[in-house]
Every structure is written in C-alpha cells, then in structure tokens.
Amino acid sequence: MLRPFPDCLKKFWRAAEEFLFAPSSDVWLSILRVVLGVQIILYCLSLRRDWNEVFASTPQGFLSRDLMEGILNVHSHFVPRLGWLISIGGYLGLSEQRVLGLCWITLLIAGGALLVGLFCRAAAVLAWLLYLAAVKSGSLLTYGVDNMTTIGLFYLALAPLPDRFSIDHKLRAQRTQDRHRLGFFRRVLQLHLCVVYFFGGLLKCLGPGWWNGNSMWRALTRPPFDILPMDFILSARAWLPAIGITVWILELGYPIFIWPRRTRAIWLTSILLMHIGIGLALGLYLFASIMIGLNLAAFGPGLILDRQEIQDAT
C-alpha cells in the first residue's frame, strides 16, 4: 500500500536532483566574478569623496557611524561592521580616518583581484566581508543595490572558484572540474533571481500606481531621479500606464518565462532593456549594472554567451 508514495518521492527526488545539479560550464561564474569585481570598483570610486565622511563617527561624520551601528545592534550584535575594524586599528594605534582609508583601498583591491581573477577565493571572501561591513555601518544610507550586491558576493564566496578565465587558473592551473557543483551554484543564483523578480512584480501589481502610470511618473520626476526633462516626460505621459504595466508583467512573469528556451531570449533581453532604462532614465547606474550582471551570469551562458554550453545542451 505504501509503495507508490516512495516511488513518487523517488521520482520527485530524481527530477529535483537532475534540475539542481544539471552540469554547467564555469562561464557563468566568470561573468559573476567579473561583474562583482566591476561593481565593487564602481562602488568604491563612486563614494571616494564621501567615504570617510559617510563612515566616520561623531563629530566628523555625515551621520554618525556609531548611531547606524547602534541601530544595527538592535537587530544583531554579530553582523560584520566597520566599527570592529576601527576598534582593532585603535589597538594598533591607527586613527579612525586611517582605518577607513585602508578599508576603502582594500575593498578596491579586492574588487580588482576579482576582476582579473587573482586569488579568487580570498578576494571573494574579503570583498564580501568588507562590502557587508560598509553597507551595515551605513545602514540608513543603503538601497536595493546593496542588497543585490551582497547576495551576489555571498554566492560568489561560496561558489567553486576559480574559473577558467581567471589568472589563478592560468598561473596555477587551479580549476574545479565538477560541472554538477558548478551547475548547482548557478541554479541557486537563478532561483534567487526568480524570487526577486516575482515578489518585485507582485508588490508592484498590488497597488494602483503601477497600473495607472502614477508610479512611473513619480519615479521619473522625483529628485534625484529626475534626469529626463520634464517636458519630455509630459509629452510621453500617455505611455506611462503601458510602461508601468509592462514592468510588473516582466517581473511577475520572470520565473515562468525565463526557463523555457523558446521564451528565455526574449524575456532576458526585455529584462536587460528594462534595467538599462532604469539606469539611464533614473540615474541608478549601480543598481542597473548589478541587475544586468546578475542576469547575464545566471541566464546568459547557454543562450548568448557560451557556445560550448549550447552545443552540450543540444
């Protein structure tokens, strides 16, 4: 009587295993590494003139780091933060400004190491920890880009590095050969993006703003995102409801249409165009670049970027 159930379970288990451990090349990992390296470098460079002021404690700082880390303490005492490094620096006789400068330089170097693939694992872990510490020590100044970059760095630090395009591989012939493990980590990233877009789309379609064009209007005209001329937006306002609806349909449909090979190209291209639009029209360049990079890493290989993988699949 009980036999069919275990058989069903076995079938499900086998299907899940085949899906989650589908063999993959390491091209996606190369893309993820390079994208995150560039992202870290851009993050550092974009904040270079404000870094010390953003993260300094009272009274030199923009908003006290002590206050933001105090708020973080309400949630957890164990989340990495710059205050820990500054305390260690204090024991070594280094001033706060000096430690903050060292953190900036180290993060920039970690980003550069990721970009070229030198000491991949150490660079990925270091970049993740320092970026996390910076984001959490400036928790009141963060937005979506920081969450998405942290997610990417978390997965990169765990993924089977180095990849074939890294300097590590060229110099020391280090490279993982386990294509199933590579496939597993790629699936994790793919599934996470599906969750991100599904809930992003769901939340948008739950309110009237993304149906009647009001949210598109507000996004495009709200400082500091008001890059496009007001006259241009006004002349195109009849299109705003359609654009708003297209945005949430693209996001809500992502977990469905990104998987079949027939619809993947069109959906991925549409999502990439949407993020290019967000970057150019709202000036959210870092957010656009991380989302484009994560999408290319997750779903690009096998479609447009890795001929070997296409051959393997066919």
């Binding site: 949630h75 990495p80 959490k136 979506g144 969450n147 942290t150 978390f154 809930f199 379609c205 309110g207």
Partner: peptide
C-alpha cells in the same frame, strides 16, 4: 544580513 536577504524586493512598490 550576511546573505543579503534581510529585506524584501519591493523596490518602488507598490508606489514610489
């Protein structure tokens, strides 16, 4: 916090 999953994904949703 470490995994970057401490918040949801409602960027600009349901309204700006």
């Amino acid at each position: 916090h470490c995994a970057g999953i401490d918040g949801g994904y409602g960027f600009f949703a349901p309204a700006v």
